[in-house]
Simulated scan of single mutants.
Amino acid sequence: MDEHRLKCFVAVYEQGSVSAAAERLHMTQPPLSILLRKLEEELKVSLFDRSGHRLVPTATGELFYLRAKALQASLQAVRRELREAEQGSRGTVHVGCATAASLFLMPRVMEQLMACDLKITVHVHEGETGYMLQRLRERSLDLIICRSQYTAPELQNLEIMNEPLRVALPPQHPLCEHAQVPLAALRHERFLLHSSLLGTGISDMLLRACQQAGFTPEVAYWGVETLPMLLMVQKGLGVAFAPESFAQLGMQGLPALVPLQDAGLRTHLNLIWQRAHALPPAAERLKALILAQCGVQPAG
C-alpha cells in the first residue's frame, strides 16, 4: 500500500463515486476502479459495498478511512519536519557551556529561538573544559562556549565576547570601597582560581600578571565553576576573579566585584567547533544566533 492508493481511496470515500473521485484526481475511471480492487486484494478486505448504484463504505471501509486520513496527516507532518530539519529550523543541538554563557548568553539565544519560532531543542552541558573538548572531538557535542582559547588545527576557535575581569573580595575587606584595585595590592591574599588543564584561560593570564607585578600568589583552591568560588569568597576563604558580567547578577550572598586597575586583565568567551565536520543544520542555525547575539561576524 502506497500513498497514492491511500489518496485514491480517500477521494472515492469522500466523493461517494468512482467517477466523481476520478474527476477530482484528474484521472480516468477505469484505472481508479482497478486500483481500488487491488487495494482491497492487498488488504484482504472489502472496503465498499457495490450492490447498489452507489458505492457505500463497509464498516471496514469506515475504519480504514479514519486510519488513511491519520496516515496522510502523519506523512505530511514527516515531510514538514524533514524540511525543517534540512533548513536548520528543527533539531537538537548539544552545547558545552561555561557558567557565564549559561547565565548571560544562552537565555538571550533562547529568546531568539522562540521569537523566530524555531523548533530547536538546546541541550546544555556544563563541566570541565577539557572533558567538553573531548566530547566535541567525539562529536557528542556540536559547539563549546568557554573561556579557554585553543589553537589545535582541527578546531575553529572564535572570540565572541571580551570583557574586563573583576576581583571578588570578602565582606568588609579594606579594598571593597576602592573604585579600582591594582593586582599588586592582592599579593598577600589567598587566590581561588579557575583550573585550565588545556588551552589558555583566565588563571594563566592572572599568574603571568602577578609575576609581572613582582609576586607569586598563594593559590588555595583550583575550581571549574565561578559561582562556587564566589560563595567561598563571601565566606572569607580568599579572593576570586570573575568577568564583569557577573556583577549584573544582583544575587544575595555574593561578594563585591571590584574592577581591576590593570587594563590588560580581560577575559574572553570563545565559541569552538570542529573544522573538519560540517555542523548539523540546527547547530549551524544556533551558531548563527549566538554570533548575532554577540555582534560577531561568522568566521570565513
Rank of each mutant, 00 (worst) to 15 (best):
C8D: 07
Q15M: 15
G16K: 09
E23K: 15
R24K: 15
M27Q: 12
M27W: 00
T28Q: 14
P31S: 10
L32P: 07
L32S: 08
I34N: 03
L35I: 04
E40A: 09
E42I: 00
E42P: 03
L43M: 15
K44T: 08
L47H: 04
S51K: 06
H53R: 14
L55K: 02
V56E: 10
P57Q: 08
L63K: 10
A68S: 15
A68C: 04
L71M: 09
L75F: 08
Q76Y: 06
R79I: 00
R83G: 01
Q87S: 13
V93Y: 05
V95A: 11
G96M: 09
C97F: 03
C97W: 01
S102H: 03
L105F: 12
M106K: 02
R108Q: 11
T121I: 12
V124C: 11
Y131C: 00
Q134G: 13
I144A: 10
R147W: 05
Q149N: 08
T151R: 14
L155E: 14
Q156W: 14
N162E: 13
E163L: 04
L165T: 05
V167P: 04
Q172I: 01
L175H: 11
P182D: 07
L183K: 10
A184K: 13
R187C: 15
R187S: 15
F191K: 01
S196L: 01
L197I: 06
G201P: 13
R208S: 05
R208A: 13
C210Q: 15
Q211Y: 05
T216Y: 01
T216D: 09
A220W: 02
L227P: 03
P228E: 11
L230C: 06
L237M: 14
G253W: 03
G253L: 02
Q261K: 12
L265D: 06
R266P: 10
T267K: 03
R275L: 10
A278V: 05
A278W: 01
L279T: 03
A282K: 05
R285T: 14
L291R: 07
A292H: 12
C294Y: 06
G295H: 02
A299C: 08
G300T: 13
